[in-house]
């Protein structure tokens, strides 16, 4: 769960991003700093075919890649469409807008930065029913807490 005191922004591009563009954008955001948490959203790219007659077979996909963000390797499991950020304070927002504009300057599609509430602040009844009372509150509302492999921690400059 998140504290409602922290501002949040959402970066939405008009097209789904290729892994190298996503890597470039995320690295630029990491340089800006002031980000507490980040969630990468988009349609899932599973490792195996999830259903249909070929269910269970491996699913080689050119966009399911490991990218390098900050000092960490990140396994992409989705085609990046939206990035949600929780910030330390509102002063970073203009720097984030600048960073996004810089990355998308040479692209032929746009990308917008919106400010609002995009992370849950308290568990819902369904969350309680699905994940029980002991679910990890740090990631509840961002991803499925039952998922193996916790969040990736990128060391800041502070």
């Amino acid at each position: 769960m998140t504290e409602a005191i922290y501002p949040q922004v959402r970066i939405v591009s008009a097209r789904f991003l290729r892994p190298d563009t996503a890597e470039q954008l995320l690295n630029r955001l990491v340089q800006v700093g002031g980000i507490r948490r980040m969630s990468i959203n988009g349609p899932s790219i599973p490792a195996t075919v999830p259903y249909g007659p070929a269910r269970g077979q491996p699913n080689p996909h050119p966009d399911r890649k490991v990218i390098h963000v900050g000092d960490q390797d990140v396994q992409l499991q989705v085609q990046v469409g939206t990035i949600i950020l929780e910030l330390e304070d509102e002063s970073c927002i203009s720097a984030i807008c600048e960073a996004v504009d810089e990355v998308f300057a040479d692209k032929d599609f746009s990308c917008t930065v919106q400010q609002g509430r995009y992370m849950k602040t308290q568990p819902t009844m369904s969350d309680y029913a699905k994940y029980g009372p002991d679910a990890d509150k740090e990631i509840l509302g961002l991803v499925d807490p039952r998922k193996k492999g916790g969040p990736i921690i990128i060391q800041g400059t502070k």
Binding site: S13, A14, R15, F16, L17, R18, T21, P43, S44, I45, P46, V49, P50, N59, P60, H61, P62, D63, Q79, G81, K107, F109
Partner: peptide, 18 residues
Amino acid sequence: HGHSLRLAENGMMFDMLQ
């Protein structure tokens, strides 16, 4: 899945199985 989603950067429709 993909008909109602944004297109990819290269203009292709999203396909989970590519």
